[in-house]
Amino acid sequence: MPQNHRIARIEAYAYRCPVETPVDTSFGRMSDRPAVFVRLEDEDGCFGWGEVFANWPAAGAEHRVNLIERDLAQLVLGQTVEDPADFFGHLSTATRIRALQSGEWGPFRQTIAGIDTALWDMKARAADLSLRKLLNPEAADRLPAYASGIHIGSAPSGLARAREDGFKAFKVKVGFNLEHDAQAVRSMAGTLDKGETLYTDANQAFNATQAMAFLSLLNDAPIGWLEEPIAADAPSAHWKDVAASTHIPLAGGENFAGKTAFADAIQAGHLKFIQPDIAKWGGISGCFAVARAAKTADLTYCPHFLGGGIGLSASTELLAAVGGDGLLEVDVNPNPLRQAFAPSGIDRSTGTWAATSKPGLGCDELPPELARYKTHQIGVHL
């Protein structure tokens, strides 16, 4: 029987972890690793965790925590939730004018995504099930995964470390220098062992003409996909031209928001890999619906994620629930905000990642070793 949860408390925590080597993308540099974790508790003491996207802008983490305290808490506390998907729709509607008034569509969508994930975690805990088993009793316990976040400039050493850890698939960041990056990708593709795959991510670096030129330099290379070759909001005709110019599949979706945007992308068919980010839009509710729609259209759902440990667990559980041939993205750059939750989930012999054996997302409390990285926290209750 479905269980209702009357929300009595909401907490949010911002963290920033310094890193020795910044994470470079084609559009900017991450000089530290931020994360925002949100915790909901009902009046019976049942709780759930979620994660809110905080990578950009650079000062965004603390802002998201304040947004939860000053805007979202008043819409969440005292509410009785039976179906998180219904409540996701309610929060999206209730914050629409606030987001329009402030022009802050992203922050509202991201905080709602984290709240939604926390509600699903709570629901799974109440049922004493992992989230994937709540969504799909036949969900697998291990998933194929790929090593992500590898800069093309350090790809040889990055691939070597990821390979040593047990990964058999790798994604390199490109979009810094078209010809140099293409040459480096071709070189790396030539070093792959049997059963390994190389993927590329331009992070929206190119216009359509540049993207087609880049792809033409890779056309005979064994590349699994090119992710976000052009801007997510580029005209559909540009995506069509890029897709038609190559046999290399295109991937994208982390910068789409809303069911209509994903439905349009799925119908257009220019993307073969659909990649919503559970912490940027949709949480479990929105991304589960998108994943099922992609699978129905014979496209592949591969969750995008490059954050902390709670979001990685949520992405793992959702991908397992959906099934299919999707790959789990695992950032391999040093980040205690991820590693403290999942020090090593990769199996060296199979290249697969382990889902949690605990209820919900598997996180009971934040690892105490993260306390030194905390920059802000709030707690609001009835």
Rank of each mutant, 00 (worst) to 15 (best):
D364L: 10
V332P: 00
D165R: 15
A182E: 07
V332Q: 01
D165K: 15
S148I: 02
V330I: 15
D44N: 12
E228V: 03
A297Q: 11
A268R: 15
S349I: 07
R338Q: 12
S315I: 05
R109D: 13
L131N: 01
T117A: 14
M1A: 14
A234M: 05
R161L: 12
G153V: 01
P367M: 10
T95Y: 02
A355Q: 06
E20L: 12
E43C: 09
I248E: 04
D128N: 14
D42H: 11
P367E: 07
E62H: 08
A140E: 13
T260W: 02
D165H: 09
G50K: 08
D264L: 09
I230K: 00
N4W: 07
C287F: 01
L143K: 01
L40E: 08
L192I: 12
E365N: 14
A85Q: 14
P229W: 03
I278G: 03
R161S: 13
S285M: 07
G311H: 06
P303A: 06
A12P: 01
L312K: 04
G253A: 05
L361Y: 08
Q74K: 14
P2R: 12
L75I: 01
G269F: 08
E62C: 13
I378W: 09
D220E: 15
L67G: 04
D325Q: 13
A314L: 04
S315V: 05
Y199L: 14
L119W: 11
W239E: 01
P144S: 10
E104T: 11
G28N: 08
N333F: 02
H376A: 13
E20N: 13
H247P: 11
F176H: 14
V242R: 04
V38P: 05
K171H: 10
P34R: 08
F108N: 04
L91A: 05
P222C: 05
V172F: 09
L370H: 02
